[in-house]
Design a protein around this nucleic acid. Sequence first.
DNA 1: ATGCACGGT
Length: 763
Amino acid sequence: MSDSTKNLKRSSAEREGVQVHKRVKTDGDAKMDTKPNPYLAHYNDNEVVASPLDEFERHKTTALQAAKAESEDNNPWTGKPHSQQYFGILKTRRDLPVHKQRQEFLDMYHKTQILVFVGETGSGKTTQIPQYVLYDELPHETGKLIACTQPRRVAAMSVAQRVANELDVDLGEEVGYSIRFENRTGPKTLLKYMTDGQLLREAMHDHDMSRYGCIILDEAHERTLATDILMALLKQIAERRKDLKIIVMSATLDAQKFQTYFFNAPLLAVPGRTYPVEIFYTSEPERDYVEAAVRTVLQIHASEPEGDILLFLTGEEEIEDACRRIGLEVDEMIRESDAGPMAVYPLYGTLPPHQQQRIFDKAPAAVRKGGRPGRKCIVSTNIAETSLTIDGIVYVVDPGFSKQKIYNPRTRVESLLVSPISKASAQQRAGRAGRTRPGKCFRLYTENAFKKELIEQTYPEILRSNLANTVLELKKLGVQDLVHFDLMDPPAPETMMRALEELNYLACLDDDGELTTLGGLASEFPLDPALAVMLISSPEFYCSNEILSITSLLSVPQIWVRPNNARKRADEMKQMFAHPDGDHLTLLNAYHAYKAAEQAGDDVKKWCHEHFLSFRHLSSADNVRAQLKRIMETHDIELVSTPFQDKDYYTNIRRALLAGFFMQVAMRESSTSKVYKTVKDDQLVMIHPGTVVSTPYDWVVYNEFVLTTKQYVRTVTNIRAEWLLEIAPTYYDVDTFEKGEIKSALTRITEKIRRRQAMKGGR
DNA sequence: ATGCACGGT
């Protein structure tokens, strides 16, 4: 610290007579020491050290001031000397496009409460803007943190690590991150990266987001459900809390929409740093896009200079098939025309992490000295469009399709459908070719189709989802009037109605649409409302331990592994865990066996492999279970079990399933049929062939409805219709049913119960 | 007689 900057001016807090430590606790309850004890002075690590930040006046700082402070020998945030690498990183930071506009950014930030910031890839916005805010917001004086949200966990973690390095602090100290299962922040934290969902969860218990002085929403153009809700909430909070600053960061040129939405907020745009990408279209539409894609990849390999290829397809099977075909054709090209070697890698979300890592391998070398150079070809889902960046891609092949979630409010079914992508998506894909040098993008559709047929932006998720969970969250967030809640793209009224109806049947909302005690409790769990209600009700059925396990297993991807080359053995192994009454109980059996193996000290990974179970998903279910258990304990929800020897052990569990899933029940059409009809929606469905249920039961409860080649219900368990009338009497009021087999069946059962009770009473 | 794109609490 140079003497010239020492004590030049005291911070505003000090001028007002408050003793401020250089590092103030930011959790709001930091206690100020009253009088320092002179006898303990040598213990006092809070000794006031002058810092260039002392001269800073909040919301009046300049880029020059910050640049000076950043160039000091000592770190202004910690007082410790800067490391050697710090100055190296500082130099690269100052080369970023956004650096030139630091003063312009500050000028705008000072004048406005809400700011829209548009920065293309490579501008440095995600790492730099929060730091610019840090040097102006001075959270160490105000005790109010800066938050920066990300749609994905990996991004929150890796960006936080990067920024901690840039600021020369330890991750988890001044800079931290918070995601589900992991909170790496501490009392010193000033800047916090987090997932958008995590900030939303926090807001449930702090409606004003009062811990924060500035909230930065990053990647807002992705329009995740959580981002959309946060935007609408922040609009409201901004009116109540004039001291809160908001920055909405987006990558698209669609900034106008964000500006208009946020009371005509000012806009700052920063150019990115990418290389030009030449776009090619087909002259005629392609009939078979997979075939066309394979052909295009081979043509690139045969005639284009060195550089890796990225091909976008829609799903696992399509990708594996294309990889096989490309591999075979390339082998032939090598034999017949001395082509270079090519490594072909599939890439999709459900691929195990170590296989995903392979995409970062170097392209293969030429087969022999002087031979044609090799390249790699990655065949990927949309995961490579936003979540994963692969350097070295020069050629992109874009057939123009992706799988998208769609929601039908009438049947309450969400499903995946292969659909044309949007213009924004196509641009994003093309951009992947120009990250390291100029590239080429081959679109397998006509230029006319691009201009006239593709929509501008992919529909935001909020328009494509079942909103039961969202509506429950909003109620818990204190949003009274859902109809006038100012979302950027309001969902269809029918979707809202369906969600309210579902929550009312689950007794989470009363008839006036107000949150009930059960609803309030359900919103505490990171689960869909039906699962949360089932879990909360389970002590009444003496099986909350078991329902807790089942809930966790239903919240992770399928634990059953069924490799193509060992289907039969995998199915036989699954039969070992099979329970005659259905798949939920079979899941529980498999989980109990897994825990037993773990307790016996077996190599669990090996045990899972031998039993065709996914170790990854079972251990993540265990993780979820621990989290849910903690929430149950905080709310005094009892953990109980029926003794295993009791004949009602499994019956109690089957009945408890209905406490949450009474709306997901199907009845067999006739005693000879394999077709079932869902209750109230009258959808004809088959039981998914992956089931262990062999005897066709008359009534089943199902966990999910899947729409593929046929309509299936998956993960089903046998139930008795009497239970429905007993556990969900309102929903199963026979008078509310349309005429048909289900109504007649329920009427017969009601009468049977009545006769039985009359006989008991007559005795 | 078997299709989960990608995310998140």
